[in-house]
Design a protein around this nucleic acid. Structure first.
Lengths: 215, 215
DNA sequence: ATCTGCATTTTTGTATACAAGATATTTGAC
DNA sequence: GTCAAATATCTTGTATACAAAAATGCAGAT
């Protein structure tokens, strides 16, 4: 799929920004990166433009591109938007979901519970991700699905933090059950509300954590 | 704001794709465009990448970038997504809108009505755009606002078509009034529902039109 | 010592040159 | 005449060279 070196570099840089290797506001030096990746400036520049397009960096003309780690406010806004996107997916999924997708949803949920019992955090995250992605897919709107996937990916590094809250995992599982129930019932309003709340609380927990750290 | 030639070129290409100058599937030849714009391939390539990033073109490695005009199904999906984004904005706006924003909303609405009375279509479009943008802004979520603005801009060329339907303009105005009322009441559910319906019907009308043209 | 103006040095943006993969064409066999 | 293989041509991707704008450093004046 990706034969161009620039694309691989973009992917690597994305990971480095995600992992916090690059601090907020840091300038991404074309020459240094070119040397570091053993390529010329050209593919580096293309990779940097990709970063800018995905919102992880900002370009100031004739000045360079700077990493743009979202602050607490922007993160909260992104979680809020995610909540609405998921609510939208849930709304349509309630009307359009297939039986096989419902099965996969239940299966992912059971896998979540199993991972939880085994203290397998990585497994839980993976299955949780699948759970939500099945809902995006079941909205039967590939454009909406793509948007949801994009933002889900963007928020991934921040979602992990919030699950450390006391009892959050159990609560999260209970919410999943309610979501599945609403989808099985085919109730758009209830599915939307359940998903909105489920995601929104993540943002709020995260915000709480950020606030507690900054005081 | 934009000192880089590549950015101006990207903007121009965007317009050309919007206006249908470039047909769906057409390859955007770097050399020809470079000659046409009297620049080298480099800024052209950057502009093409911008087009790809905004979803108006597709890049196939080692093959080139091709214009990607959305088909009826994808357009319908985009309208559906727009409806949900606007509903989300309306939901939050009902809780967060300021008095001054409400005033601007009413003013834009009156300007719409005035333009309608004078058969000033361009004026109507402009004021209608402002009406919706005030709502995005009033959601007090700049991330969500940005997403809404992006999709609104992307759908702009298609929205105009749909307003030609008999009586659609009058109906649209009535919906605007209902939206303002819900926001004034501070009722999130009603605001969301009103906006969802208002935008979704545009998609439906558009789909009807496309279907009638293809038969 | 600090600030201002000029010169130097980086660094971005663009043009050109080169490499490699994809497409088109030609030539030969059947 | 059709098909296939080899060659030629074209196009993208990358490297390098050049131009222009911004940042930096230094000298001199206040």
């Amino acid at each position: 799929m990706e034969v161009r070196r620039a694309d691989k570099i973009a992917e690597t840089l994305e990971q480095l920004v995600f992992s916090g290797e690059f601090k907020d506001g840091e300038r991404l030096d074309e020459l240094k990166l070119a040397e570091q990746f053993c390529v010329s400036r050209t593919p580096i520049r293309e990779a940097l433009h990709a970063l800018v397009a995905s919102g992880m960096a900002e370009q100031i003309p004739r000045r360079g591109v700077f990493v743009r780690q979202p602050g607490p406010v922007e993160l909260m806004e992104m979680f809020e938007t995610m909540a609405e996107l998921e609510a939208a997916c849930g709304r349509y999924a309630a009307l359009r979901i297939t039986d096989s997708a419902l099965d996969r949803l239940v299966a992912a949920n059971e896998n979540c519970q199993r991972a939880l019992a085994q203290q397998d955090h990585a497994g839980y995250y993976a299955q949780n991700e699948i759970f939500h992605q099945v809902i995006y897919e079941s909205a039967a709107n590939s454009y909406l699905e793509k948007q949801a996937l994009r933002l889900q990916n963007r928020l991934k590094p921040y979602r992990k933090v919030q699950l450390r809250f006391r009892g959050r995992l159990d609560q999260s599982m209970a919410e999943h059950v309610a979501i599945v129930a609403a989808l099985q019932e085919g109730d758009p309003e209830q599915a939307a509300a359940a998903l909105r709340g489920h995601v929104a609380v993540q943002g709020e927990k995260f915000y709480q954590l950020m606030a507690s750290l900054n005081s």
